[in-house]
Structures are given as structure tokens and as C-alpha cells.
């Protein structure tokens, strides 16, 4: 048929018509604007924020009473060990790499399967081979569990399907034995609680890493490394965002069995925090 070979002509015609209509629509909109100048264009308040966003803001708030302010994650010890050569930026990148490699796989695993919380907590307890680091992790983990029990649970009854309740019960009946059944480390609990209140996996990982950076920077301000404006500058900087994303990508598929220390000297700094003559932090 002839129309098959001449098929491009009707298409061109339609395209011309569309262009013409668009031009007229544009024109009509312009005229409308001038006709009613005092009317603001949009009064629609937009959709409500999701409930999970509310919890995202709560869990990323530095006012969350975890006691993070008491820990410097080795920063204080690093400065004492490297009086002349210490720089915050090199500590920050070492600390992020180390923290992500040792802990982030546990956060991700607990988010993917909150029911495995007890096993993950036990494995992390076996993997933190440093007294000071264990103390910091457990203190904040217990505080987070306390926040869940006393504050969050009322708004999310049974959202955890009894996982956290059973975990807390196990922790309470724990006697002071050599190998505890539950320790309440921060990483797995954070992952499980974020999953329960509806945060996404990537979101959870980002909040977890960002909270670590915030705690480090806040410790740096109090240890007089720099002032609060410089602190916000570091926090807002592109470098911190890139590093956090790189770390999440690096650990996304790491099994908890393969988590490990990427900065061996970090264990030494954190472990030797106890040998400082004067201390303002617990780690």
C-alpha cells in the first residue's frame, strides 16, 4: 500500500500539531498569570511524610539518649599517641573504614532479619576483641534497648513480633558468666530497631554511619581539635557523604563471618585508651 511508504508524512503532521498545541498552551498559561496576578499558584500542602521518616529523624537525632557523647571511639587516644602528627581528617577516614568493616555488616544483617538478633549479638560480642571497644558498644546498645522498651514500643506495639522483648528478657536473666548469652551491642540492635520502625536498609546504614561521624566530630569539638563551625563544615562536606556511601557500598554484601578490622592500629589506640593519664571520654 502506498501509505506504508509515505508513513513518515502523517507522523510529521502529528508532531507539528503537538508543537502548535504546546505553544498555545504556553501562551494561554502566560495570559492566565497576567489575568490573576495576586493568586499564588499552589496551595496544596503535599502528601504527609511517612511514619518511618518520623522515626528516621528521631533515630538520627543527637538528642537520642544513647550516651554517645561519652565516647570518642579512639580519637582521644589517637591524639595522645600521635601528638605531633595527628590530623582529624586521617583519623576520620581510618575510623570510618574500621567502624564500617567491623560493625556495618551486623547492622545490615539485623535489618534484613531482625529475628536473628540474638545470634548476631553473640557473634559481634566474639568479634570485638578490645575491652574499651566492647564497653562503648554495649553501653550504647543497652541504652538503645532501653529507649525501645520505655519510649518507642508504646507507639509500635507488637511491631517487633516479640523479638526485642525476648532479647531483653535474655539480657535480664544473664548472670555474670564467662560467655554471656546476650550482651546488647549497638550495631545489631540498631539494625533490628530501624527495620521494626520501617526505615529502609540503605537509610539505616546511612544513619548508623552518620551518627558515628557526628559522635566523632562532637568529641573532636570537646577535645579542642576544632571549633563548632569547622565541625559543621566537616559534617556538611562532600567528603563525609562520599566516604559514608563508599563504606556502605563496600560492606553491602559482606557476610558477618567476614567482617573484620581494616585498620589494625585502631584496635591498639582504642585498647590503649585505658593507659592515658587523663581522660575526658570513656573510649
Amino acid at each position: 500500500m502506498a501509505s506504508l511508504h509515505l508513513g513518515s508524512d502523517p507522523v510529521n503532521g502529528i508532531q507539528d500539531e503537538i508543537l502548535e498545541l504546546e505553544r498555545r498552551l504556553q501562551d494561554a498559561k502566560e495570559r492566565l498569570k497576567t489575568a490573576q496576578p495576586q493568586q499564588s499558584p499552589a496551595r496544596d500542602p503535599g502528601p504527609h511524610l511517612a511514619g518511618s521518616t518520623h522515626f528516621l529523624l528521631l533515630l538520627s537525632d543527637s538528642a537520642l539518649p544513647l550516651g554517645s557523647f561519652a565516647f570518642s571511639s579512639g580519637l582521644e587516644s589517637y591524639i595522645a599517641h600521635n601528638r605531633r602528627t595527628a590530623t582529624f581528617s586521617s583519623f576520620l577516614s581510618s575510623s570510618l573504614s574500621s567502624f564500617a568493616a567491623t560493625t556495618l555488616p551486623f547492622v545490615l544483617a539485623a535489618h534484613r532479619d531482625p529475628a536473628s538478633l540474638v545470634a548476631l549479638d553473640d557473634q559481634l560480642d566474639a568479634a570485638i576483641v578490645c575491652t574499651v571497644g566492647r564497653r562503648a558498644s554495649v553501653a550504647q546498645g543497652r541504652a538503645l534497648l532501653g529507649i525501645w522498651e520505655r519510649s518507642f514500643r508504646a507507639s509500635q506495639p507488637d511491631a517487633d513480633q516479640g523479638v526485642l522483648r525476648a532479647f531483653a528478657a535474655l539480657l535480664r536473666e544473664e548472670s555474670k558468666r564467662d560467655v554471656p548469652l546476650a550482651s546488647a551491642h549497638l550495631g545489631p540492635l540498631f539494625g533490628a530497631i530501624c527495620a521494626i520502625v520501617g526505615l529502609g536498609l540503605r537509610q539505616t546504614a546511612y544513619v548508623f554511619m552518620l551518627s558515628h561521624v557526628k559522635a566523632l566530630i562532637s568529641a573532636a569539638v570537646r577535645a579542642s581539635v576544632f571549633g563548632p563551625y569547622q565541625a559543621q563544615k566537616v559534617l556538611a562536606g562532600q567528603q563525609v557523604q562520599v566516604m559514608i556511601d563508599e563504606m556502605i557500598d563496600r560492606e553491602w554484601n559482606t557476610q558477618v563471618e567476614e567482617a573484620g578490622q581494616t585498620v589494625p592500629v585502631m584496635d591498639l589506640w582504642i585498647g590503649r585508651h585505658e593507659t592515658l593519664y587523663s581522660r575526658i571520654f570513656n573510649s
Binding site: S90, S93, S94, L96, S97, A101, Q123, A126, A127, V129, V179, Q239, M243, E246, M247, D249, R250, E257, E258, A259, G260, Q261, T262, P264
Partner: peptide, 18 residues
Amino acid sequence: LVRDSVILSRDGSQAVGR
């Protein structure tokens, strides 16, 4: 009881720009 694990990696360090 204990799982002590060390990962030294050229690429892993480069991810934080070191």
C-alpha cells in the same frame, strides 16, 4: 568464643581515599 579478623586491602583503603 572469639572471632578475630583482619582485612588489609588496597581497594578497601582507597574507598576512604587513603
